[in-house]
């Protein structure tokens, strides 16, 4: 376990990820609820119901998230054991069946998250997202195919690829594939970019 951070100290954490999630949901509900006041009663009724449900669930998640650290073993109910104290992703204690099931679920690509919020873990996804955002921003400026080629080179470099054959193969292959499948087969008008128009 690393040094405690505001979001992930081992014990007695004031702000667990669950608490933050719950509060975000409550705030989100409040903001949207405020936006329903300009609507007619008929148009607003259903969204308001949905928002109240969301706020209630958010509050429940927040309360449960705050309480969780105080209880070493959550009951076999709906508390997520993978975020119980001491259950670091690397060392799941195999003491009770819930923790074991949680260990199985932690690897589930669509299932429960790992709850690892250390900055060291988040740095790479954040940088990758930055590259992707730049890619999308460039789409309409330098054109779809050029932006895609450039992006592929940049992201491969970021991922540690240094072999020029991989660069060439991936960039040429994917751009050609996109061109033939989308522009040629499916006749999607890909933006050419304002620099070239």
């Amino acid at each position: 376990m690393q040094t405690p951070t505001p979001t992930r100290p081992p014990r007695r954490r004031p702000l667990t990820p669950d608490t933050v999630l719950g509060l975000v949901l409550v705030v989100l509900s409040a903001v949207f609820l405020a936006a329903t006041f300009g609507l007619s009663a008929e148009a607003a009724a259903w969204p308001r119901g949905v928002l109240l449900a969301l706020a209630a669930l958010g509050a429940a998640i927040a309360v449960r998230g705050r309480r969780a650290p105080a209880r070493p073993a959550p009951p076999a109910g709906d508390a997520d054991p993978s975020r119980a104290p001491g259950a670091a992703p690397s060392a799941e204690p195999g003491t009770d069946a819930d923790a074991v099931a949680a260990a199985a679920e932690a690897r589930d690509p669509e299932g429960a998250g790992d709850g690892d919020w250390r900055p060291a873990v988040l740095r790479r996804p954040a940088a990758a997202l930055g590259i992707i955002v730049a890619y999308v921003a460039l789409l309409e400026v330098i054109g779809f195919l050029a932006a895609t080629g450039l992006y592929l080179l940049a992201h491969l470099w970021f991922n540690g690829v240094r072999d020029w054959r991989v660069f060439a193969g991936v960039a040429v292959g994917v751009v050609a594939f996109i061109h033939f499948l989308f522009a040629y087969e499916l006749s999607v008008p890909l933006p050419a970019g304002m620099l070239f128009e």
Binding site: A128, I132, Y135, V136, L139, F144, T148, Y151, L152, H155, L156, N159, G160, V161, V166, V170, V174, I178, F182, L186, V188, L190
Partner: peptide, 17 residues
Amino acid sequence: RVLVPIIVALCVVGTYA
């Protein structure tokens, strides 16, 4: 590390299309 950029490019072009 090679697959990831390819997947992203397909996400982008697919969504656009």
